[in-house]
Simulated assay, not measured.
Amino acid sequence: MASKLKYETARFSGAYGTPEQLPEPTTPEVSFVGRSNVGKSSLLNKLLGRKALAHVSGQPGKTANINFYDVDGVMFVDLPGYGFAKVSHAEKRRWSKLIAGYFDQRRSFNLVVALIDIRHDAQDIDQETLAFLTQAELPFVVALTKADKLSRARQERQAATLARQLNVDRSSMVVTSAKAGTGIRELRGLIEAACL
């Protein structure tokens, strides 16, 4: 495999609604986790250099399955957004079972990209997610999304605050913006380093 991923070859590979349906892991995997309205689909599309491969919805909580994208032999795994209020309790339970079921499997967890909105303080659910990833010893990086909404100085201050609140090293965070393209090259570099 070349040292760079060919992102333009990205294609949708499948969507799965229960852990039992998930395909056998045969390639490196990069998983994307985050709250429902954190901008996961937008960031994925930007990373893949595509307008609408991952479905972007004006309505948070739209990714109800685990979506797999084949990117030059590396699987990008888009997990349902968590913590969104406007879905039924049954659906929320299904999502959390699905996410837990994915992480319970023996898979090639090369990197988990945990998305957090840079504009807000860390929420309990974000802290729980990062505590879980740390405890499970899964390699992860925190992508701080929607950075275009803040000034550069404010981005730095907020990143430092979030690092403290989440109890992670500032060096394991990437400030990103799907709109402005901020941090995309850096994030690609981390993904390639983890997978190639």
Rank of each mutant, 00 (worst) to 15 (best):
L130F: 00
R119P: 06
G73L: 13
G58Y: 03
R152S: 02
S172A: 08
I125D: 07
Q155V: 00
R94M: 07
Y69L: 08
Y69S: 12
E128S: 13
E192N: 11
L5D: 11
L111F: 03
L144W: 06
T27R: 13
R119A: 04
A64H: 15
S151R: 15
L48V: 01
P60N: 06
H55Y: 14
S88W: 14
P60R: 12
A90K: 15
L150A: 01
E20C: 02
F84L: 11
K97W: 02
S96K: 07
A159S: 15
E186A: 09
R50A: 04
F140N: 00
N167Y: 01
L111K: 07
S151E: 15
K149C: 00
G83F: 08
L115K: 13
L144F: 02
V74C: 09
Q135Y: 10
N45A: 06
K40N: 01
E137Y: 05
G181N: 14
K46E: 04
E192P: 13
E128N: 03
V113G: 05
L130T: 03
P28R: 12
L98M: 10
H55E: 12
Y7R: 07
A143P: 13
T145E: 05
A147I: 04
N65R: 13
Y69M: 05
D104G: 13
L5V: 10
L22S: 13
A15E: 11
F12N: 14
I125V: 12
E192D: 13
D126W: 00
V87R: 14
Y7W: 14
Y16P: 09
P80S: 14
G39S: 03
A122R: 02
R157S: 03
S171V: 00
D70R: 07
R94L: 07
L166F: 11
D78F: 01
Q59P: 03
G14E: 05
V71G: 10
G17Q: 12
I99A: 11
V141F: 06
R107E: 06
A193N: 15
S172C: 09
D117A: 03
Q59A: 15
L44G: 01
S177P: 04
P25N: 03
A163M: 06
G34N: 05
A90G: 13
Q155L: 04
G73P: 10
V74N: 10
L150N: 04
T176P: 00
E91T: 13
R164W: 01
T9S: 09
D70G: 08
H89F: 15
R35W: 08
G39M: 03
D72T: 08
R94T: 02
F76Y: 13
Q165M: 07
W95D: 08
L130M: 07
L79Y: 06
A64M: 09
G49F: 12
G17L: 10
S42N: 03
Y102A: 07
R164H: 02
V142R: 04
K146D: 08
A15H: 13
G17D: 09
V33K: 00
E8L: 04
I118A: 07
Y16A: 09
A160N: 07
D104P: 01
V113A: 02
S171R: 09
A85G: 15
G49R: 15
A10C: 15
Q105L: 15
Y16E: 07
L44P: 09
Q135E: 15
P80D: 12
F84W: 14
D72I: 08
S151L: 06
L190I: 05
L166E: 01
W95I: 12
K62F: 04
P23A: 11
S96G: 05
A85E: 06
K46D: 00
P139L: 02
